[in-house]
Amino acid sequence: MEAILETTNVSKKFGGLQVLDRVNLTVYAGEILGLVGPNGAGKTTLFNILSGAIPLDSGTVTAFGTEIQNKKPFEIATLGLVRTFQIVRPFPTMTCRENILVARLLSTPRPSVKDPLIDELLESIGIAHLALKKAQELTLMEKKKMEIARALATTPKLLLLDEVMSGLNPTEINEAIELLLKLRKEKNITIIWIEHVMKAIVKTADRIAVLHRGQLLTVDTPSKVISDPQVIEVYLGRANHA
């Protein structure tokens, strides 16, 4: 299998807190990799480093064959690695459609005003009826969906999703899962997917990586991960306490 992303010994400290500790992770082309771990484990920080939003302290990140740890966010996005934000970041004064059009400019510098891909995206994410609404008027759920559509509009090769399903009801979660599977199949996108909803991730991911206090505990198939005593101890055990 072809590695699309590789981190070697990625470490990050915030003040005295070691948030990421020598993380070595390989992501293969075409897979859906689930990334789980208790709150504060460092998942979002890892996304911030992969997408260039914050610098790492040491280590390297290689995506699509090039080292990207010193690249700027827009350069990384241009290479085809695009993320969503755990705390949504829409362009509030722009309509849903305009939000997505901005992202579309990356892959198609001159999309036509009636670019069919945008409508297709709005349709498949289920927000076609909101196309002309200002992003600031959307509900949190609608904003999250809009952000996924926006990320997809760049036609990424590797998509990082940060807790896009928290707050969804079970039906919506099922729809979202179907959407992810469809994306992988039709658009050949590789996905790293941070999620708290363990059930959804076990059902959908090809492999699951478990992060705990900045260290990668294990990366394995869902069935192996959920029966791993170490994982049950630190992740599920803690989650039950929370």
Binding site: A53, P73, F91, T93, M94, V102, R150, T154
Partner: peptide, 24 residues
């Protein structure tokens, strides 16, 4: 224009704009 759309994106949210490839 499309350039104007990028202007507004940068103003609305610089980090989000960069995340979809806008050279802010």
């Amino acid at each position: 224009s499309r350039m104007g759309l990028r202007f507004r994106a940068v103003m609305d949210d610089e980090i989000a704009a960069a995340s979809v490839g806008v050279h802010t």
